[in-house]
Design a protein around this nucleic acid. Structure first.
Lengths: 193, 193
DNA sequence: AGTTTTCCATACTCTACCGTATGGAACAAG
DNA sequence: CTTGTTCCATACGGTAGAGTATGGAAAACT
C-alpha cells in the first residue's frame, strides 16, 4: 500500500511545482535546490523521484502540452460558429491565466532544445485550428492558412507586449476597443458575403 | 599618445563583442569569462575597462538602441509615401539581420531589469512611427493607434515564429505570398479612397 | 517482531562564473 | 635611461547550483 496522504511527495507534485515556478520566474529559474526549498524539502527528495533536471523539465513540458491540447479541442472545438470561435480564441488570453503565463515563459525560451519542439507542435496545432475556422468562413485554403499565421502572429505579439507591460489592462475598456479593432480587421464579417 | 593599433582593446570593442555574443546565444550567455576567451584575452582585461558585467550590458544596450533609433529615423523616415513606408517596415525584417537578431534575443529577456526599459522605449518609438503612417493614410488617430499596435504585434509574432523556425525562408516565394497577404490585410489600399 | 521498501536529509565533490588583488610587460613621457 | 601609465595575465576567494553517496526514520509487508 502506498501512503496517499500529504506526508510524502509524488513525481506529479514536483512537476506541478515546476510549472508553477516556471510560470513565475521563467524556465531558467527552474533549479532543483530553490524548488526544493520552496516545497519545504531538500534535493534528496527530488533525486529519488527524478534522474535529473532534464527529466523534470521534460515531464513538466509534457504535462503542460497535454493540458493545452485538451483546452484547444474541448473549449474551442465545441463552438460551432467559426466567427465566434475565433473571437473566443482572442478572449481566452485573459482567462486561463496560468496556461498563458507558462506559454509566455516558454516563448522566451525558444531555442532551448527541450522547449523548441513543444512550441513548434503547439503553434502548429493552434494555427491549423484557426485555419479551419477561416475556411469555414468561406476563405480559400491558401488564404485561410496565411490569415491563420497572421492571426497567430497577432496573438504572439500581444503576449510579448504583455510581457513588456505595454498592453492595456485586460479588463479595461481600452482593451475591449482594441480587441474590437483586431476582430474587425482580421475576421471577415459573416453577413457581408 | 594612445596606441591606436589592434594590439590593445577598447571599451567599444567589448561592447561590440558583447552584442555579437548576445545575438548568437542570447543575453543569459553574456558572461565575462567566456566572452574574454572568445576575444583571446582574460577577464583581467575586462575589469580594467568596465566595473562589472552590469555596466557592459548597459553600454551594449545603449549602443544597440541608438543604432536602432538611427535606423528608424533615417532609413524609414526618408520614405514619403506612407503606404510604401509601412511595406518597407515589414521588408526590413529580412535585411538588417544583426539588429534583428539582437532584438529577438532581447525580446526573450523581457523582464530583465536592464532590458525592459529599452524594449519599452523601442516599441513605443516604432509604434508611434507606424501610427503616423496610418494617419497619413487617412485613418482617424484612435484607429491609427490601434492599427499600429496590431501591426507591431504582427511583426513581433513573426519574429517569434522565426525563432521557432516556423516561418518560410525569407527569400522564398512562400514568404512573398504571405507578405502580400499581410500587406493586403493591414494596409488600406491608397487608391480605393 | 523482524525485514524490506519508501522517501528524504545530510554531507560531500565538481563545475562555472563573479569580482578582487597583484604583478608585470610594453609603451610613452621626461 | 628612468619613471609612470596603460593594458592585461595570473592567482585567489566566494557563491550557486548539479549530481552522488550514504544514513536513517517510518511505513509496509511477511
Amino acid at each position: 500500500m502506498r501512503r496517499n496522504d500529504k506526508e510524502t511527495l509524488t513525481a506529479a507534485d514536483w512537476e506541478m511545482a515546476a510549472l508553477q515556478l516556471m510560470a513565475e520566474k521563467g524556465i531558467q529559474a527552474l533549479a532543483i535546490e530553490p524548488l526544493a526549498r520552496r516545497m519545504g524539502v531538500t534535493k534528496g527528495s527530488f533525486y529519488w523521484h527524478f534522474p535529473g533536471r532534464e527529466a523534470l523539465l521534460e515531464q513538466a513540458l509534457s504535462l503542460w502540452e497535454s493540458h493545452d491540447r485538451r483546452n484547444l479541442n474541448k473549449s474551442l472545438g465545441e463552438i460551432h460558429d467559426p466567427s465566434e470561435r475565433l473571437v473566443t480564441f482572442f478572449r481566452r488570453v485573459g482567462k486561463e491565466t496560468f496556461t498563458h503565463e507558462v506559454y509566455s515563459e516558454l516563448l522566451a525560451a525558444a531555442g532551448h532544445p527541450q522547449v523548441e519542439p513543444v512550441l513548434e507542435r503547439v503553434a502548429e496545432r493552434r494555427m491549423k485550428h484557426i485555419a479551419v475556422a477561416f475556411e469555414e468562413l468561406g476563405m480559400p485554403p491558401d488564404e485561410a492558412q496565411y490569415r491563420a499565421r497572421l492571426t497567430y502572429s497577432v496573438y504572439l505579439g500581444f503576449l510579448q507586449l504583455q510581457r513588456q507591460h505595454q498592453t492595456p489592462s485586460l479588463s479595461s475598456e481600452a482593451f475591449e476597443a482594441y480587441l474590437d479593432h483586431v476582430i474587425e480587421t482580421l475576421i471577415p464579417a459573416p453577413e457581408a458575403n
